[in-house]
Amino acid sequence: MVRLPLTPAEVERGQRLGALLRRARGDRSMLLTALDAGVSPETLRKIESGRIATPAFPTIAAIADVLGLSLDAVWSEINKSDDEAEFIRRDHPVAERLAS
């Protein structure tokens, strides 16, 4: 099966997802986070760097659970426009924004 190239919107969404996960992980070790989520550290590194722009849902669900992020918050964050995402990053800490 041939995979179609990603659209620019999919690439941007993947970059926002990676940035969100990096911020939420904070000082927590990438290795421990990955192991707790049941994914390889390499997979987590690729997601955080945006190299895997469209990871599988169970992978994101497991990582989000380990980081204490709701899937609604993750979905909302990665689908914001660049201006909205920058406003939220600048004016609202991750813990306050995503803990609900």
Rank of each mutant, 00 (worst) to 15 (best):
V11S: 03
E77A: 15
E96C: 13
L21S: 10
E12C: 04
S40R: 00
A64W: 00
P58T: 08
T7L: 08
E12M: 13
S76H: 13
A56E: 15
I47M: 01
T59F: 04
E84P: 00
R97C: 10
L6H: 15
F87L: 12
M1W: 03
A34H: 14
F57N: 05
P55H: 02
L71T: 09
E48K: 08
A64F: 03
P58E: 01
P58H: 08
D36G: 03
S40Y: 04
N79I: 03
I63E: 01
R25V: 00
V2W: 11
L6V: 04
R25G: 05
L6A: 12
P41T: 00
T59Y: 02
E96Y: 08
I60D: 01
T59L: 05
L35Y: 05
P55C: 00
T54I: 02
L98A: 14
I52M: 00
I88Y: 12
I88E: 07
L98E: 06
A85M: 05
V66Q: 08
A53G: 11
E86D: 12
A19W: 08
P93W: 04
L98G: 00
L31A: 09
I88K: 08
V39N: 04
D36I: 02
V11K: 15
A56F: 05
I63N: 06
M30F: 03
H92N: 10
D27L: 14
R23V: 07
R13K: 15
R90T: 12
A19D: 12
R45M: 14
P5L: 04
K80H: 06
A24L: 02
T33D: 01
I52P: 02
D65T: 15
G38P: 11
E42W: 02
A73M: 10
E10F: 12
R89A: 13
L20D: 00
S40A: 12
L35W: 12
R28N: 11
E42A: 09
L4D: 14
E86K: 12
A62I: 07
Q15C: 03
V2A: 04
S81V: 08
T54N: 12
W75E: 09
V2E: 15
S40P: 06
L44N: 07
R45D: 11
V11W: 04
L35C: 07
D36W: 00
L32I: 13
A95F: 07
D91I: 01
P41D: 01
P58S: 05
A64T: 01
L20E: 10
D83T: 12
E48W: 09
A95I: 10
A24T: 11
V66S: 01
L98M: 14
G26K: 10
W75H: 08
R51H: 08
L31M: 05
I52T: 06
A19L: 10
V74R: 09
L67E: 04
D36H: 09
P41N: 00
